[in-house]
Nucleic acid binder design. Structure first.
Lengths: 220, 220
DNA sequence: CACAAATTTGAACAACTGGTAGAAAGATAC
DNA sequence: GTATCTTTCTACCAGTTGTTCAAATTTGTG
């Protein structure tokens, strides 16, 4: 185990790099996205830096040239999710649209983020206890701001009379967010449903409900 | 702080042991429920057996008299959740009720489980990758069976014409389950909402939707 | 009291953890 | 070629992990 044939993996010396590049370039982005997958699958606490390095075909030591420490990787995952989420939603809320349309677009946006950044999203809603210091507080805050946008849309709809006041805006918001966020538990990119179709159905469910309209007195 | 008066519920065998036992008895149930809270808060991978033992005022070694190993604790958490969930739902589905009523009761049941067994539920939906072997497969199966009950209710409603066919039953099910399961992320037992009220609003949302009924042509 | 069974202890263990230091390799420019 | 800078590797540290186990302790019973 100690005496290994180092000749087998001997690094090619000089210029001839015509062969396939054995070693993929190690970047911060690659580390973060590899870590996101591992964190999503095994959890932050159970994933070691060795695991991450191995997955990238590198060694633990190399990681530390690109990242500060383990928590720093987690930080980058959170920033990645927030960067993809916040701005588009803020634009939708600010746009001059009827509440039903705002809700539809907001759901489409959120579902799309959840679907495309699936591992990072899983981590986002699972590993926040492992963030410490001021950054942890910042994330909680930004998450609340994000969720508040949805609540605003619901409230707007209620004020305009298009959404029922019988349902508490806060609970409605938690409900619709749960619906979307739960995607990360079952959505498969290569599955039978596109995220567009899922978003459309979620919107229909939330706006019209499951019940068929009471048999309208429509004489043929 | 350590010694609770178990005398109140003590089955009191023969000799009168009216005095309080100095050391709280270490039981499998106590271990599992303490572990559930810690797993929910810090994650399975980041929670050590020392943490669990310390919380119970015992030592790590003592745990092994009551449980086989760490994964065994997790197993018990899963069994606990399933035991509280499966049977009541099966009864609701089998009962001779209209689909809308079945849906309402199923949601009420599920929300109540999620609200009362909060830490265990959090663990249930978060730590399944840490289950290994045949037991892991069994859990996946039973979870699917459980979720299938909800799907059945939706399909039943569609067949009866009371639920719209425009919404895929599978997606509707994932949506409503997400709504309920997300509770574990925000529900606080001492908060402003009882789980009954939450369930009622979720049901209203899912059945009628958020939209106010189209202004009925109701003169006067 | 004694005696046995049930329970807990505390130490030991091998394996692994996140993190660090420094040498070595590779690339780039002169 | 030499010099410089970036990137990766090896080796190691100090601490923690899950697990085992013989010995000590507590408990129930006669």
């Amino acid at each position: 185990m100690v005496a290994d044939e180092s000749a087998t993996t001997a690094p090619r010396k000089k210029t001839d790099r015509s062969n396939a590049p054995r070693r993929a370039r190690l970047t911060q982005k690659a580390i973060v996205s590899a870590a996101a997958e591992l964190f999503a699958r095994k959890g932050f606490g159970a994933t070691s830096l060795d695991d991450i390095a191995e997955r990238l075909g590198a060694t633990k030591g190399a990681l530390y040239y690109h990242i500060k420490n383990k928590e720093d990787i987690l930080r980058h995952i959170y920033l990645m999710v927030l960067a993809a989420s916040e701005e588009p939603l803020a634009e939708i809320v600010a746009a001059p649209l009827p509440p039903t349309e705002k809700l539809a677009r907001a759901i489409a946006h959120h579902v799309s983020v959840a679907a495309n950044r699936s591992p990072a999203m899983t981590v986002f809603y699972r590993e926040h206890p492992h963030l410490t210091g001021p950054f942890a507080r910042e994330i909680v805050l930004r998450k609340k701001v994000y969720e508040r946008y949805f609540e605003q849309i619901v409230e707007e709809g209620q004020a305009a009379g298009v959404f029922s006041r019988a349902i508490d805006a806060k609970i409605a918001t938690f409900g619709l967010l749960g619906m979307c966020n739960w995607l990360s538990q079952w959505y498969q990119p290569d599955g039978a449903y596109t995220h567009q179709r899922i978003a459309a159905m979620f919107t229909a469910m939330l706006e019209q409900g499951l019940l068929t309209p009471p048999a309208s007195p429509d004489p043929a």
